[in-house]
Amino acid sequence: MSRSIEYGNLMHDAMRGLIRKVLQDVADHGLPGAHHFFITFDTGHPDAELADWLSDRYPDEMTVVVQHWYDNLEVTDDGFSITLNFGDAPEPLYIPYDAIKTFVDPSVEFGLRFETQDSDAEDDEAEDPAAPAHLPAVKPKGKKLKPDETKSTSDKEDEAGVKDAEIVSLDSFRK
């Protein structure tokens, strides 16, 4: 059995380290200027912690926004915890770095996407895991999402009185 250098995994580790450093700076000094983050993560990750109603609503992935209101941002080597506001209800979350699918700061047009690689099917035409993010299309506010599109949070209330998320088109931040 020959040994090989796992460049994809090394790049993912480096990119997660970058996210950790950015979040630690925000925890220490607050968000500078117009910076804010869209973080999409796997809600089914075994180490992710979120309220049952959020994991029921977003069983696969969820995009959170760290911008105007957040509290209790604590950064560790494996992930971060943060309290965010969902329809005027503060909810604590724990997001492991390896659950993160995309990390975007639209104020400076910066984004990272973590590609999942199946070890069984190595496709020579697979996208480079270290390539800049080409984020999934998000429909503008008021349009219904297809099942394969990114979900986020809104100000509309559903039948149960729980507020749904506002859908933000990231295309408006691209040039």
Rank of each mutant, 00 (worst) to 15 (best):
G87D: 11
I5G: 00
H29G: 03
L18G: 02
D78H: 01
I100R: 07
D105V: 03
T40L: 06
H45R: 01
T102A: 13
E159D: 15
H29Q: 06
G111N: 10
E109V: 07
Y58K: 01
V168N: 12
K175N: 12
G111V: 07
S172T: 15
S119Q: 07
F114R: 03
M1R: 06
F80H: 05
D105A: 06
D118T: 00
R3G: 02
A27W: 04
E49P: 00
V168C: 05
D158P: 11
N85P: 04
L145P: 12
I82L: 15
P96C: 00
E149M: 08
D71Q: 15
S119P: 08
E74R: 03
G33H: 13
T83A: 14
Y70H: 15
K146C: 02
D52A: 09
D52N: 04
V26D: 05
E122S: 04
S2W: 08
T83N: 09
E61W: 05
G44S: 14
E6I: 02
A160H: 15
K141M: 11
W69F: 13
D128M: 02
S81P: 03
L18R: 05
D120N: 04
P136N: 10
D13M: 01
G87R: 02
G87Y: 07
E115A: 13
A130I: 02
D158S: 08
D77P: 00
Y94E: 02
Y94G: 00
D71C: 09
H12P: 00
G30P: 03
D120W: 00
D123A: 14
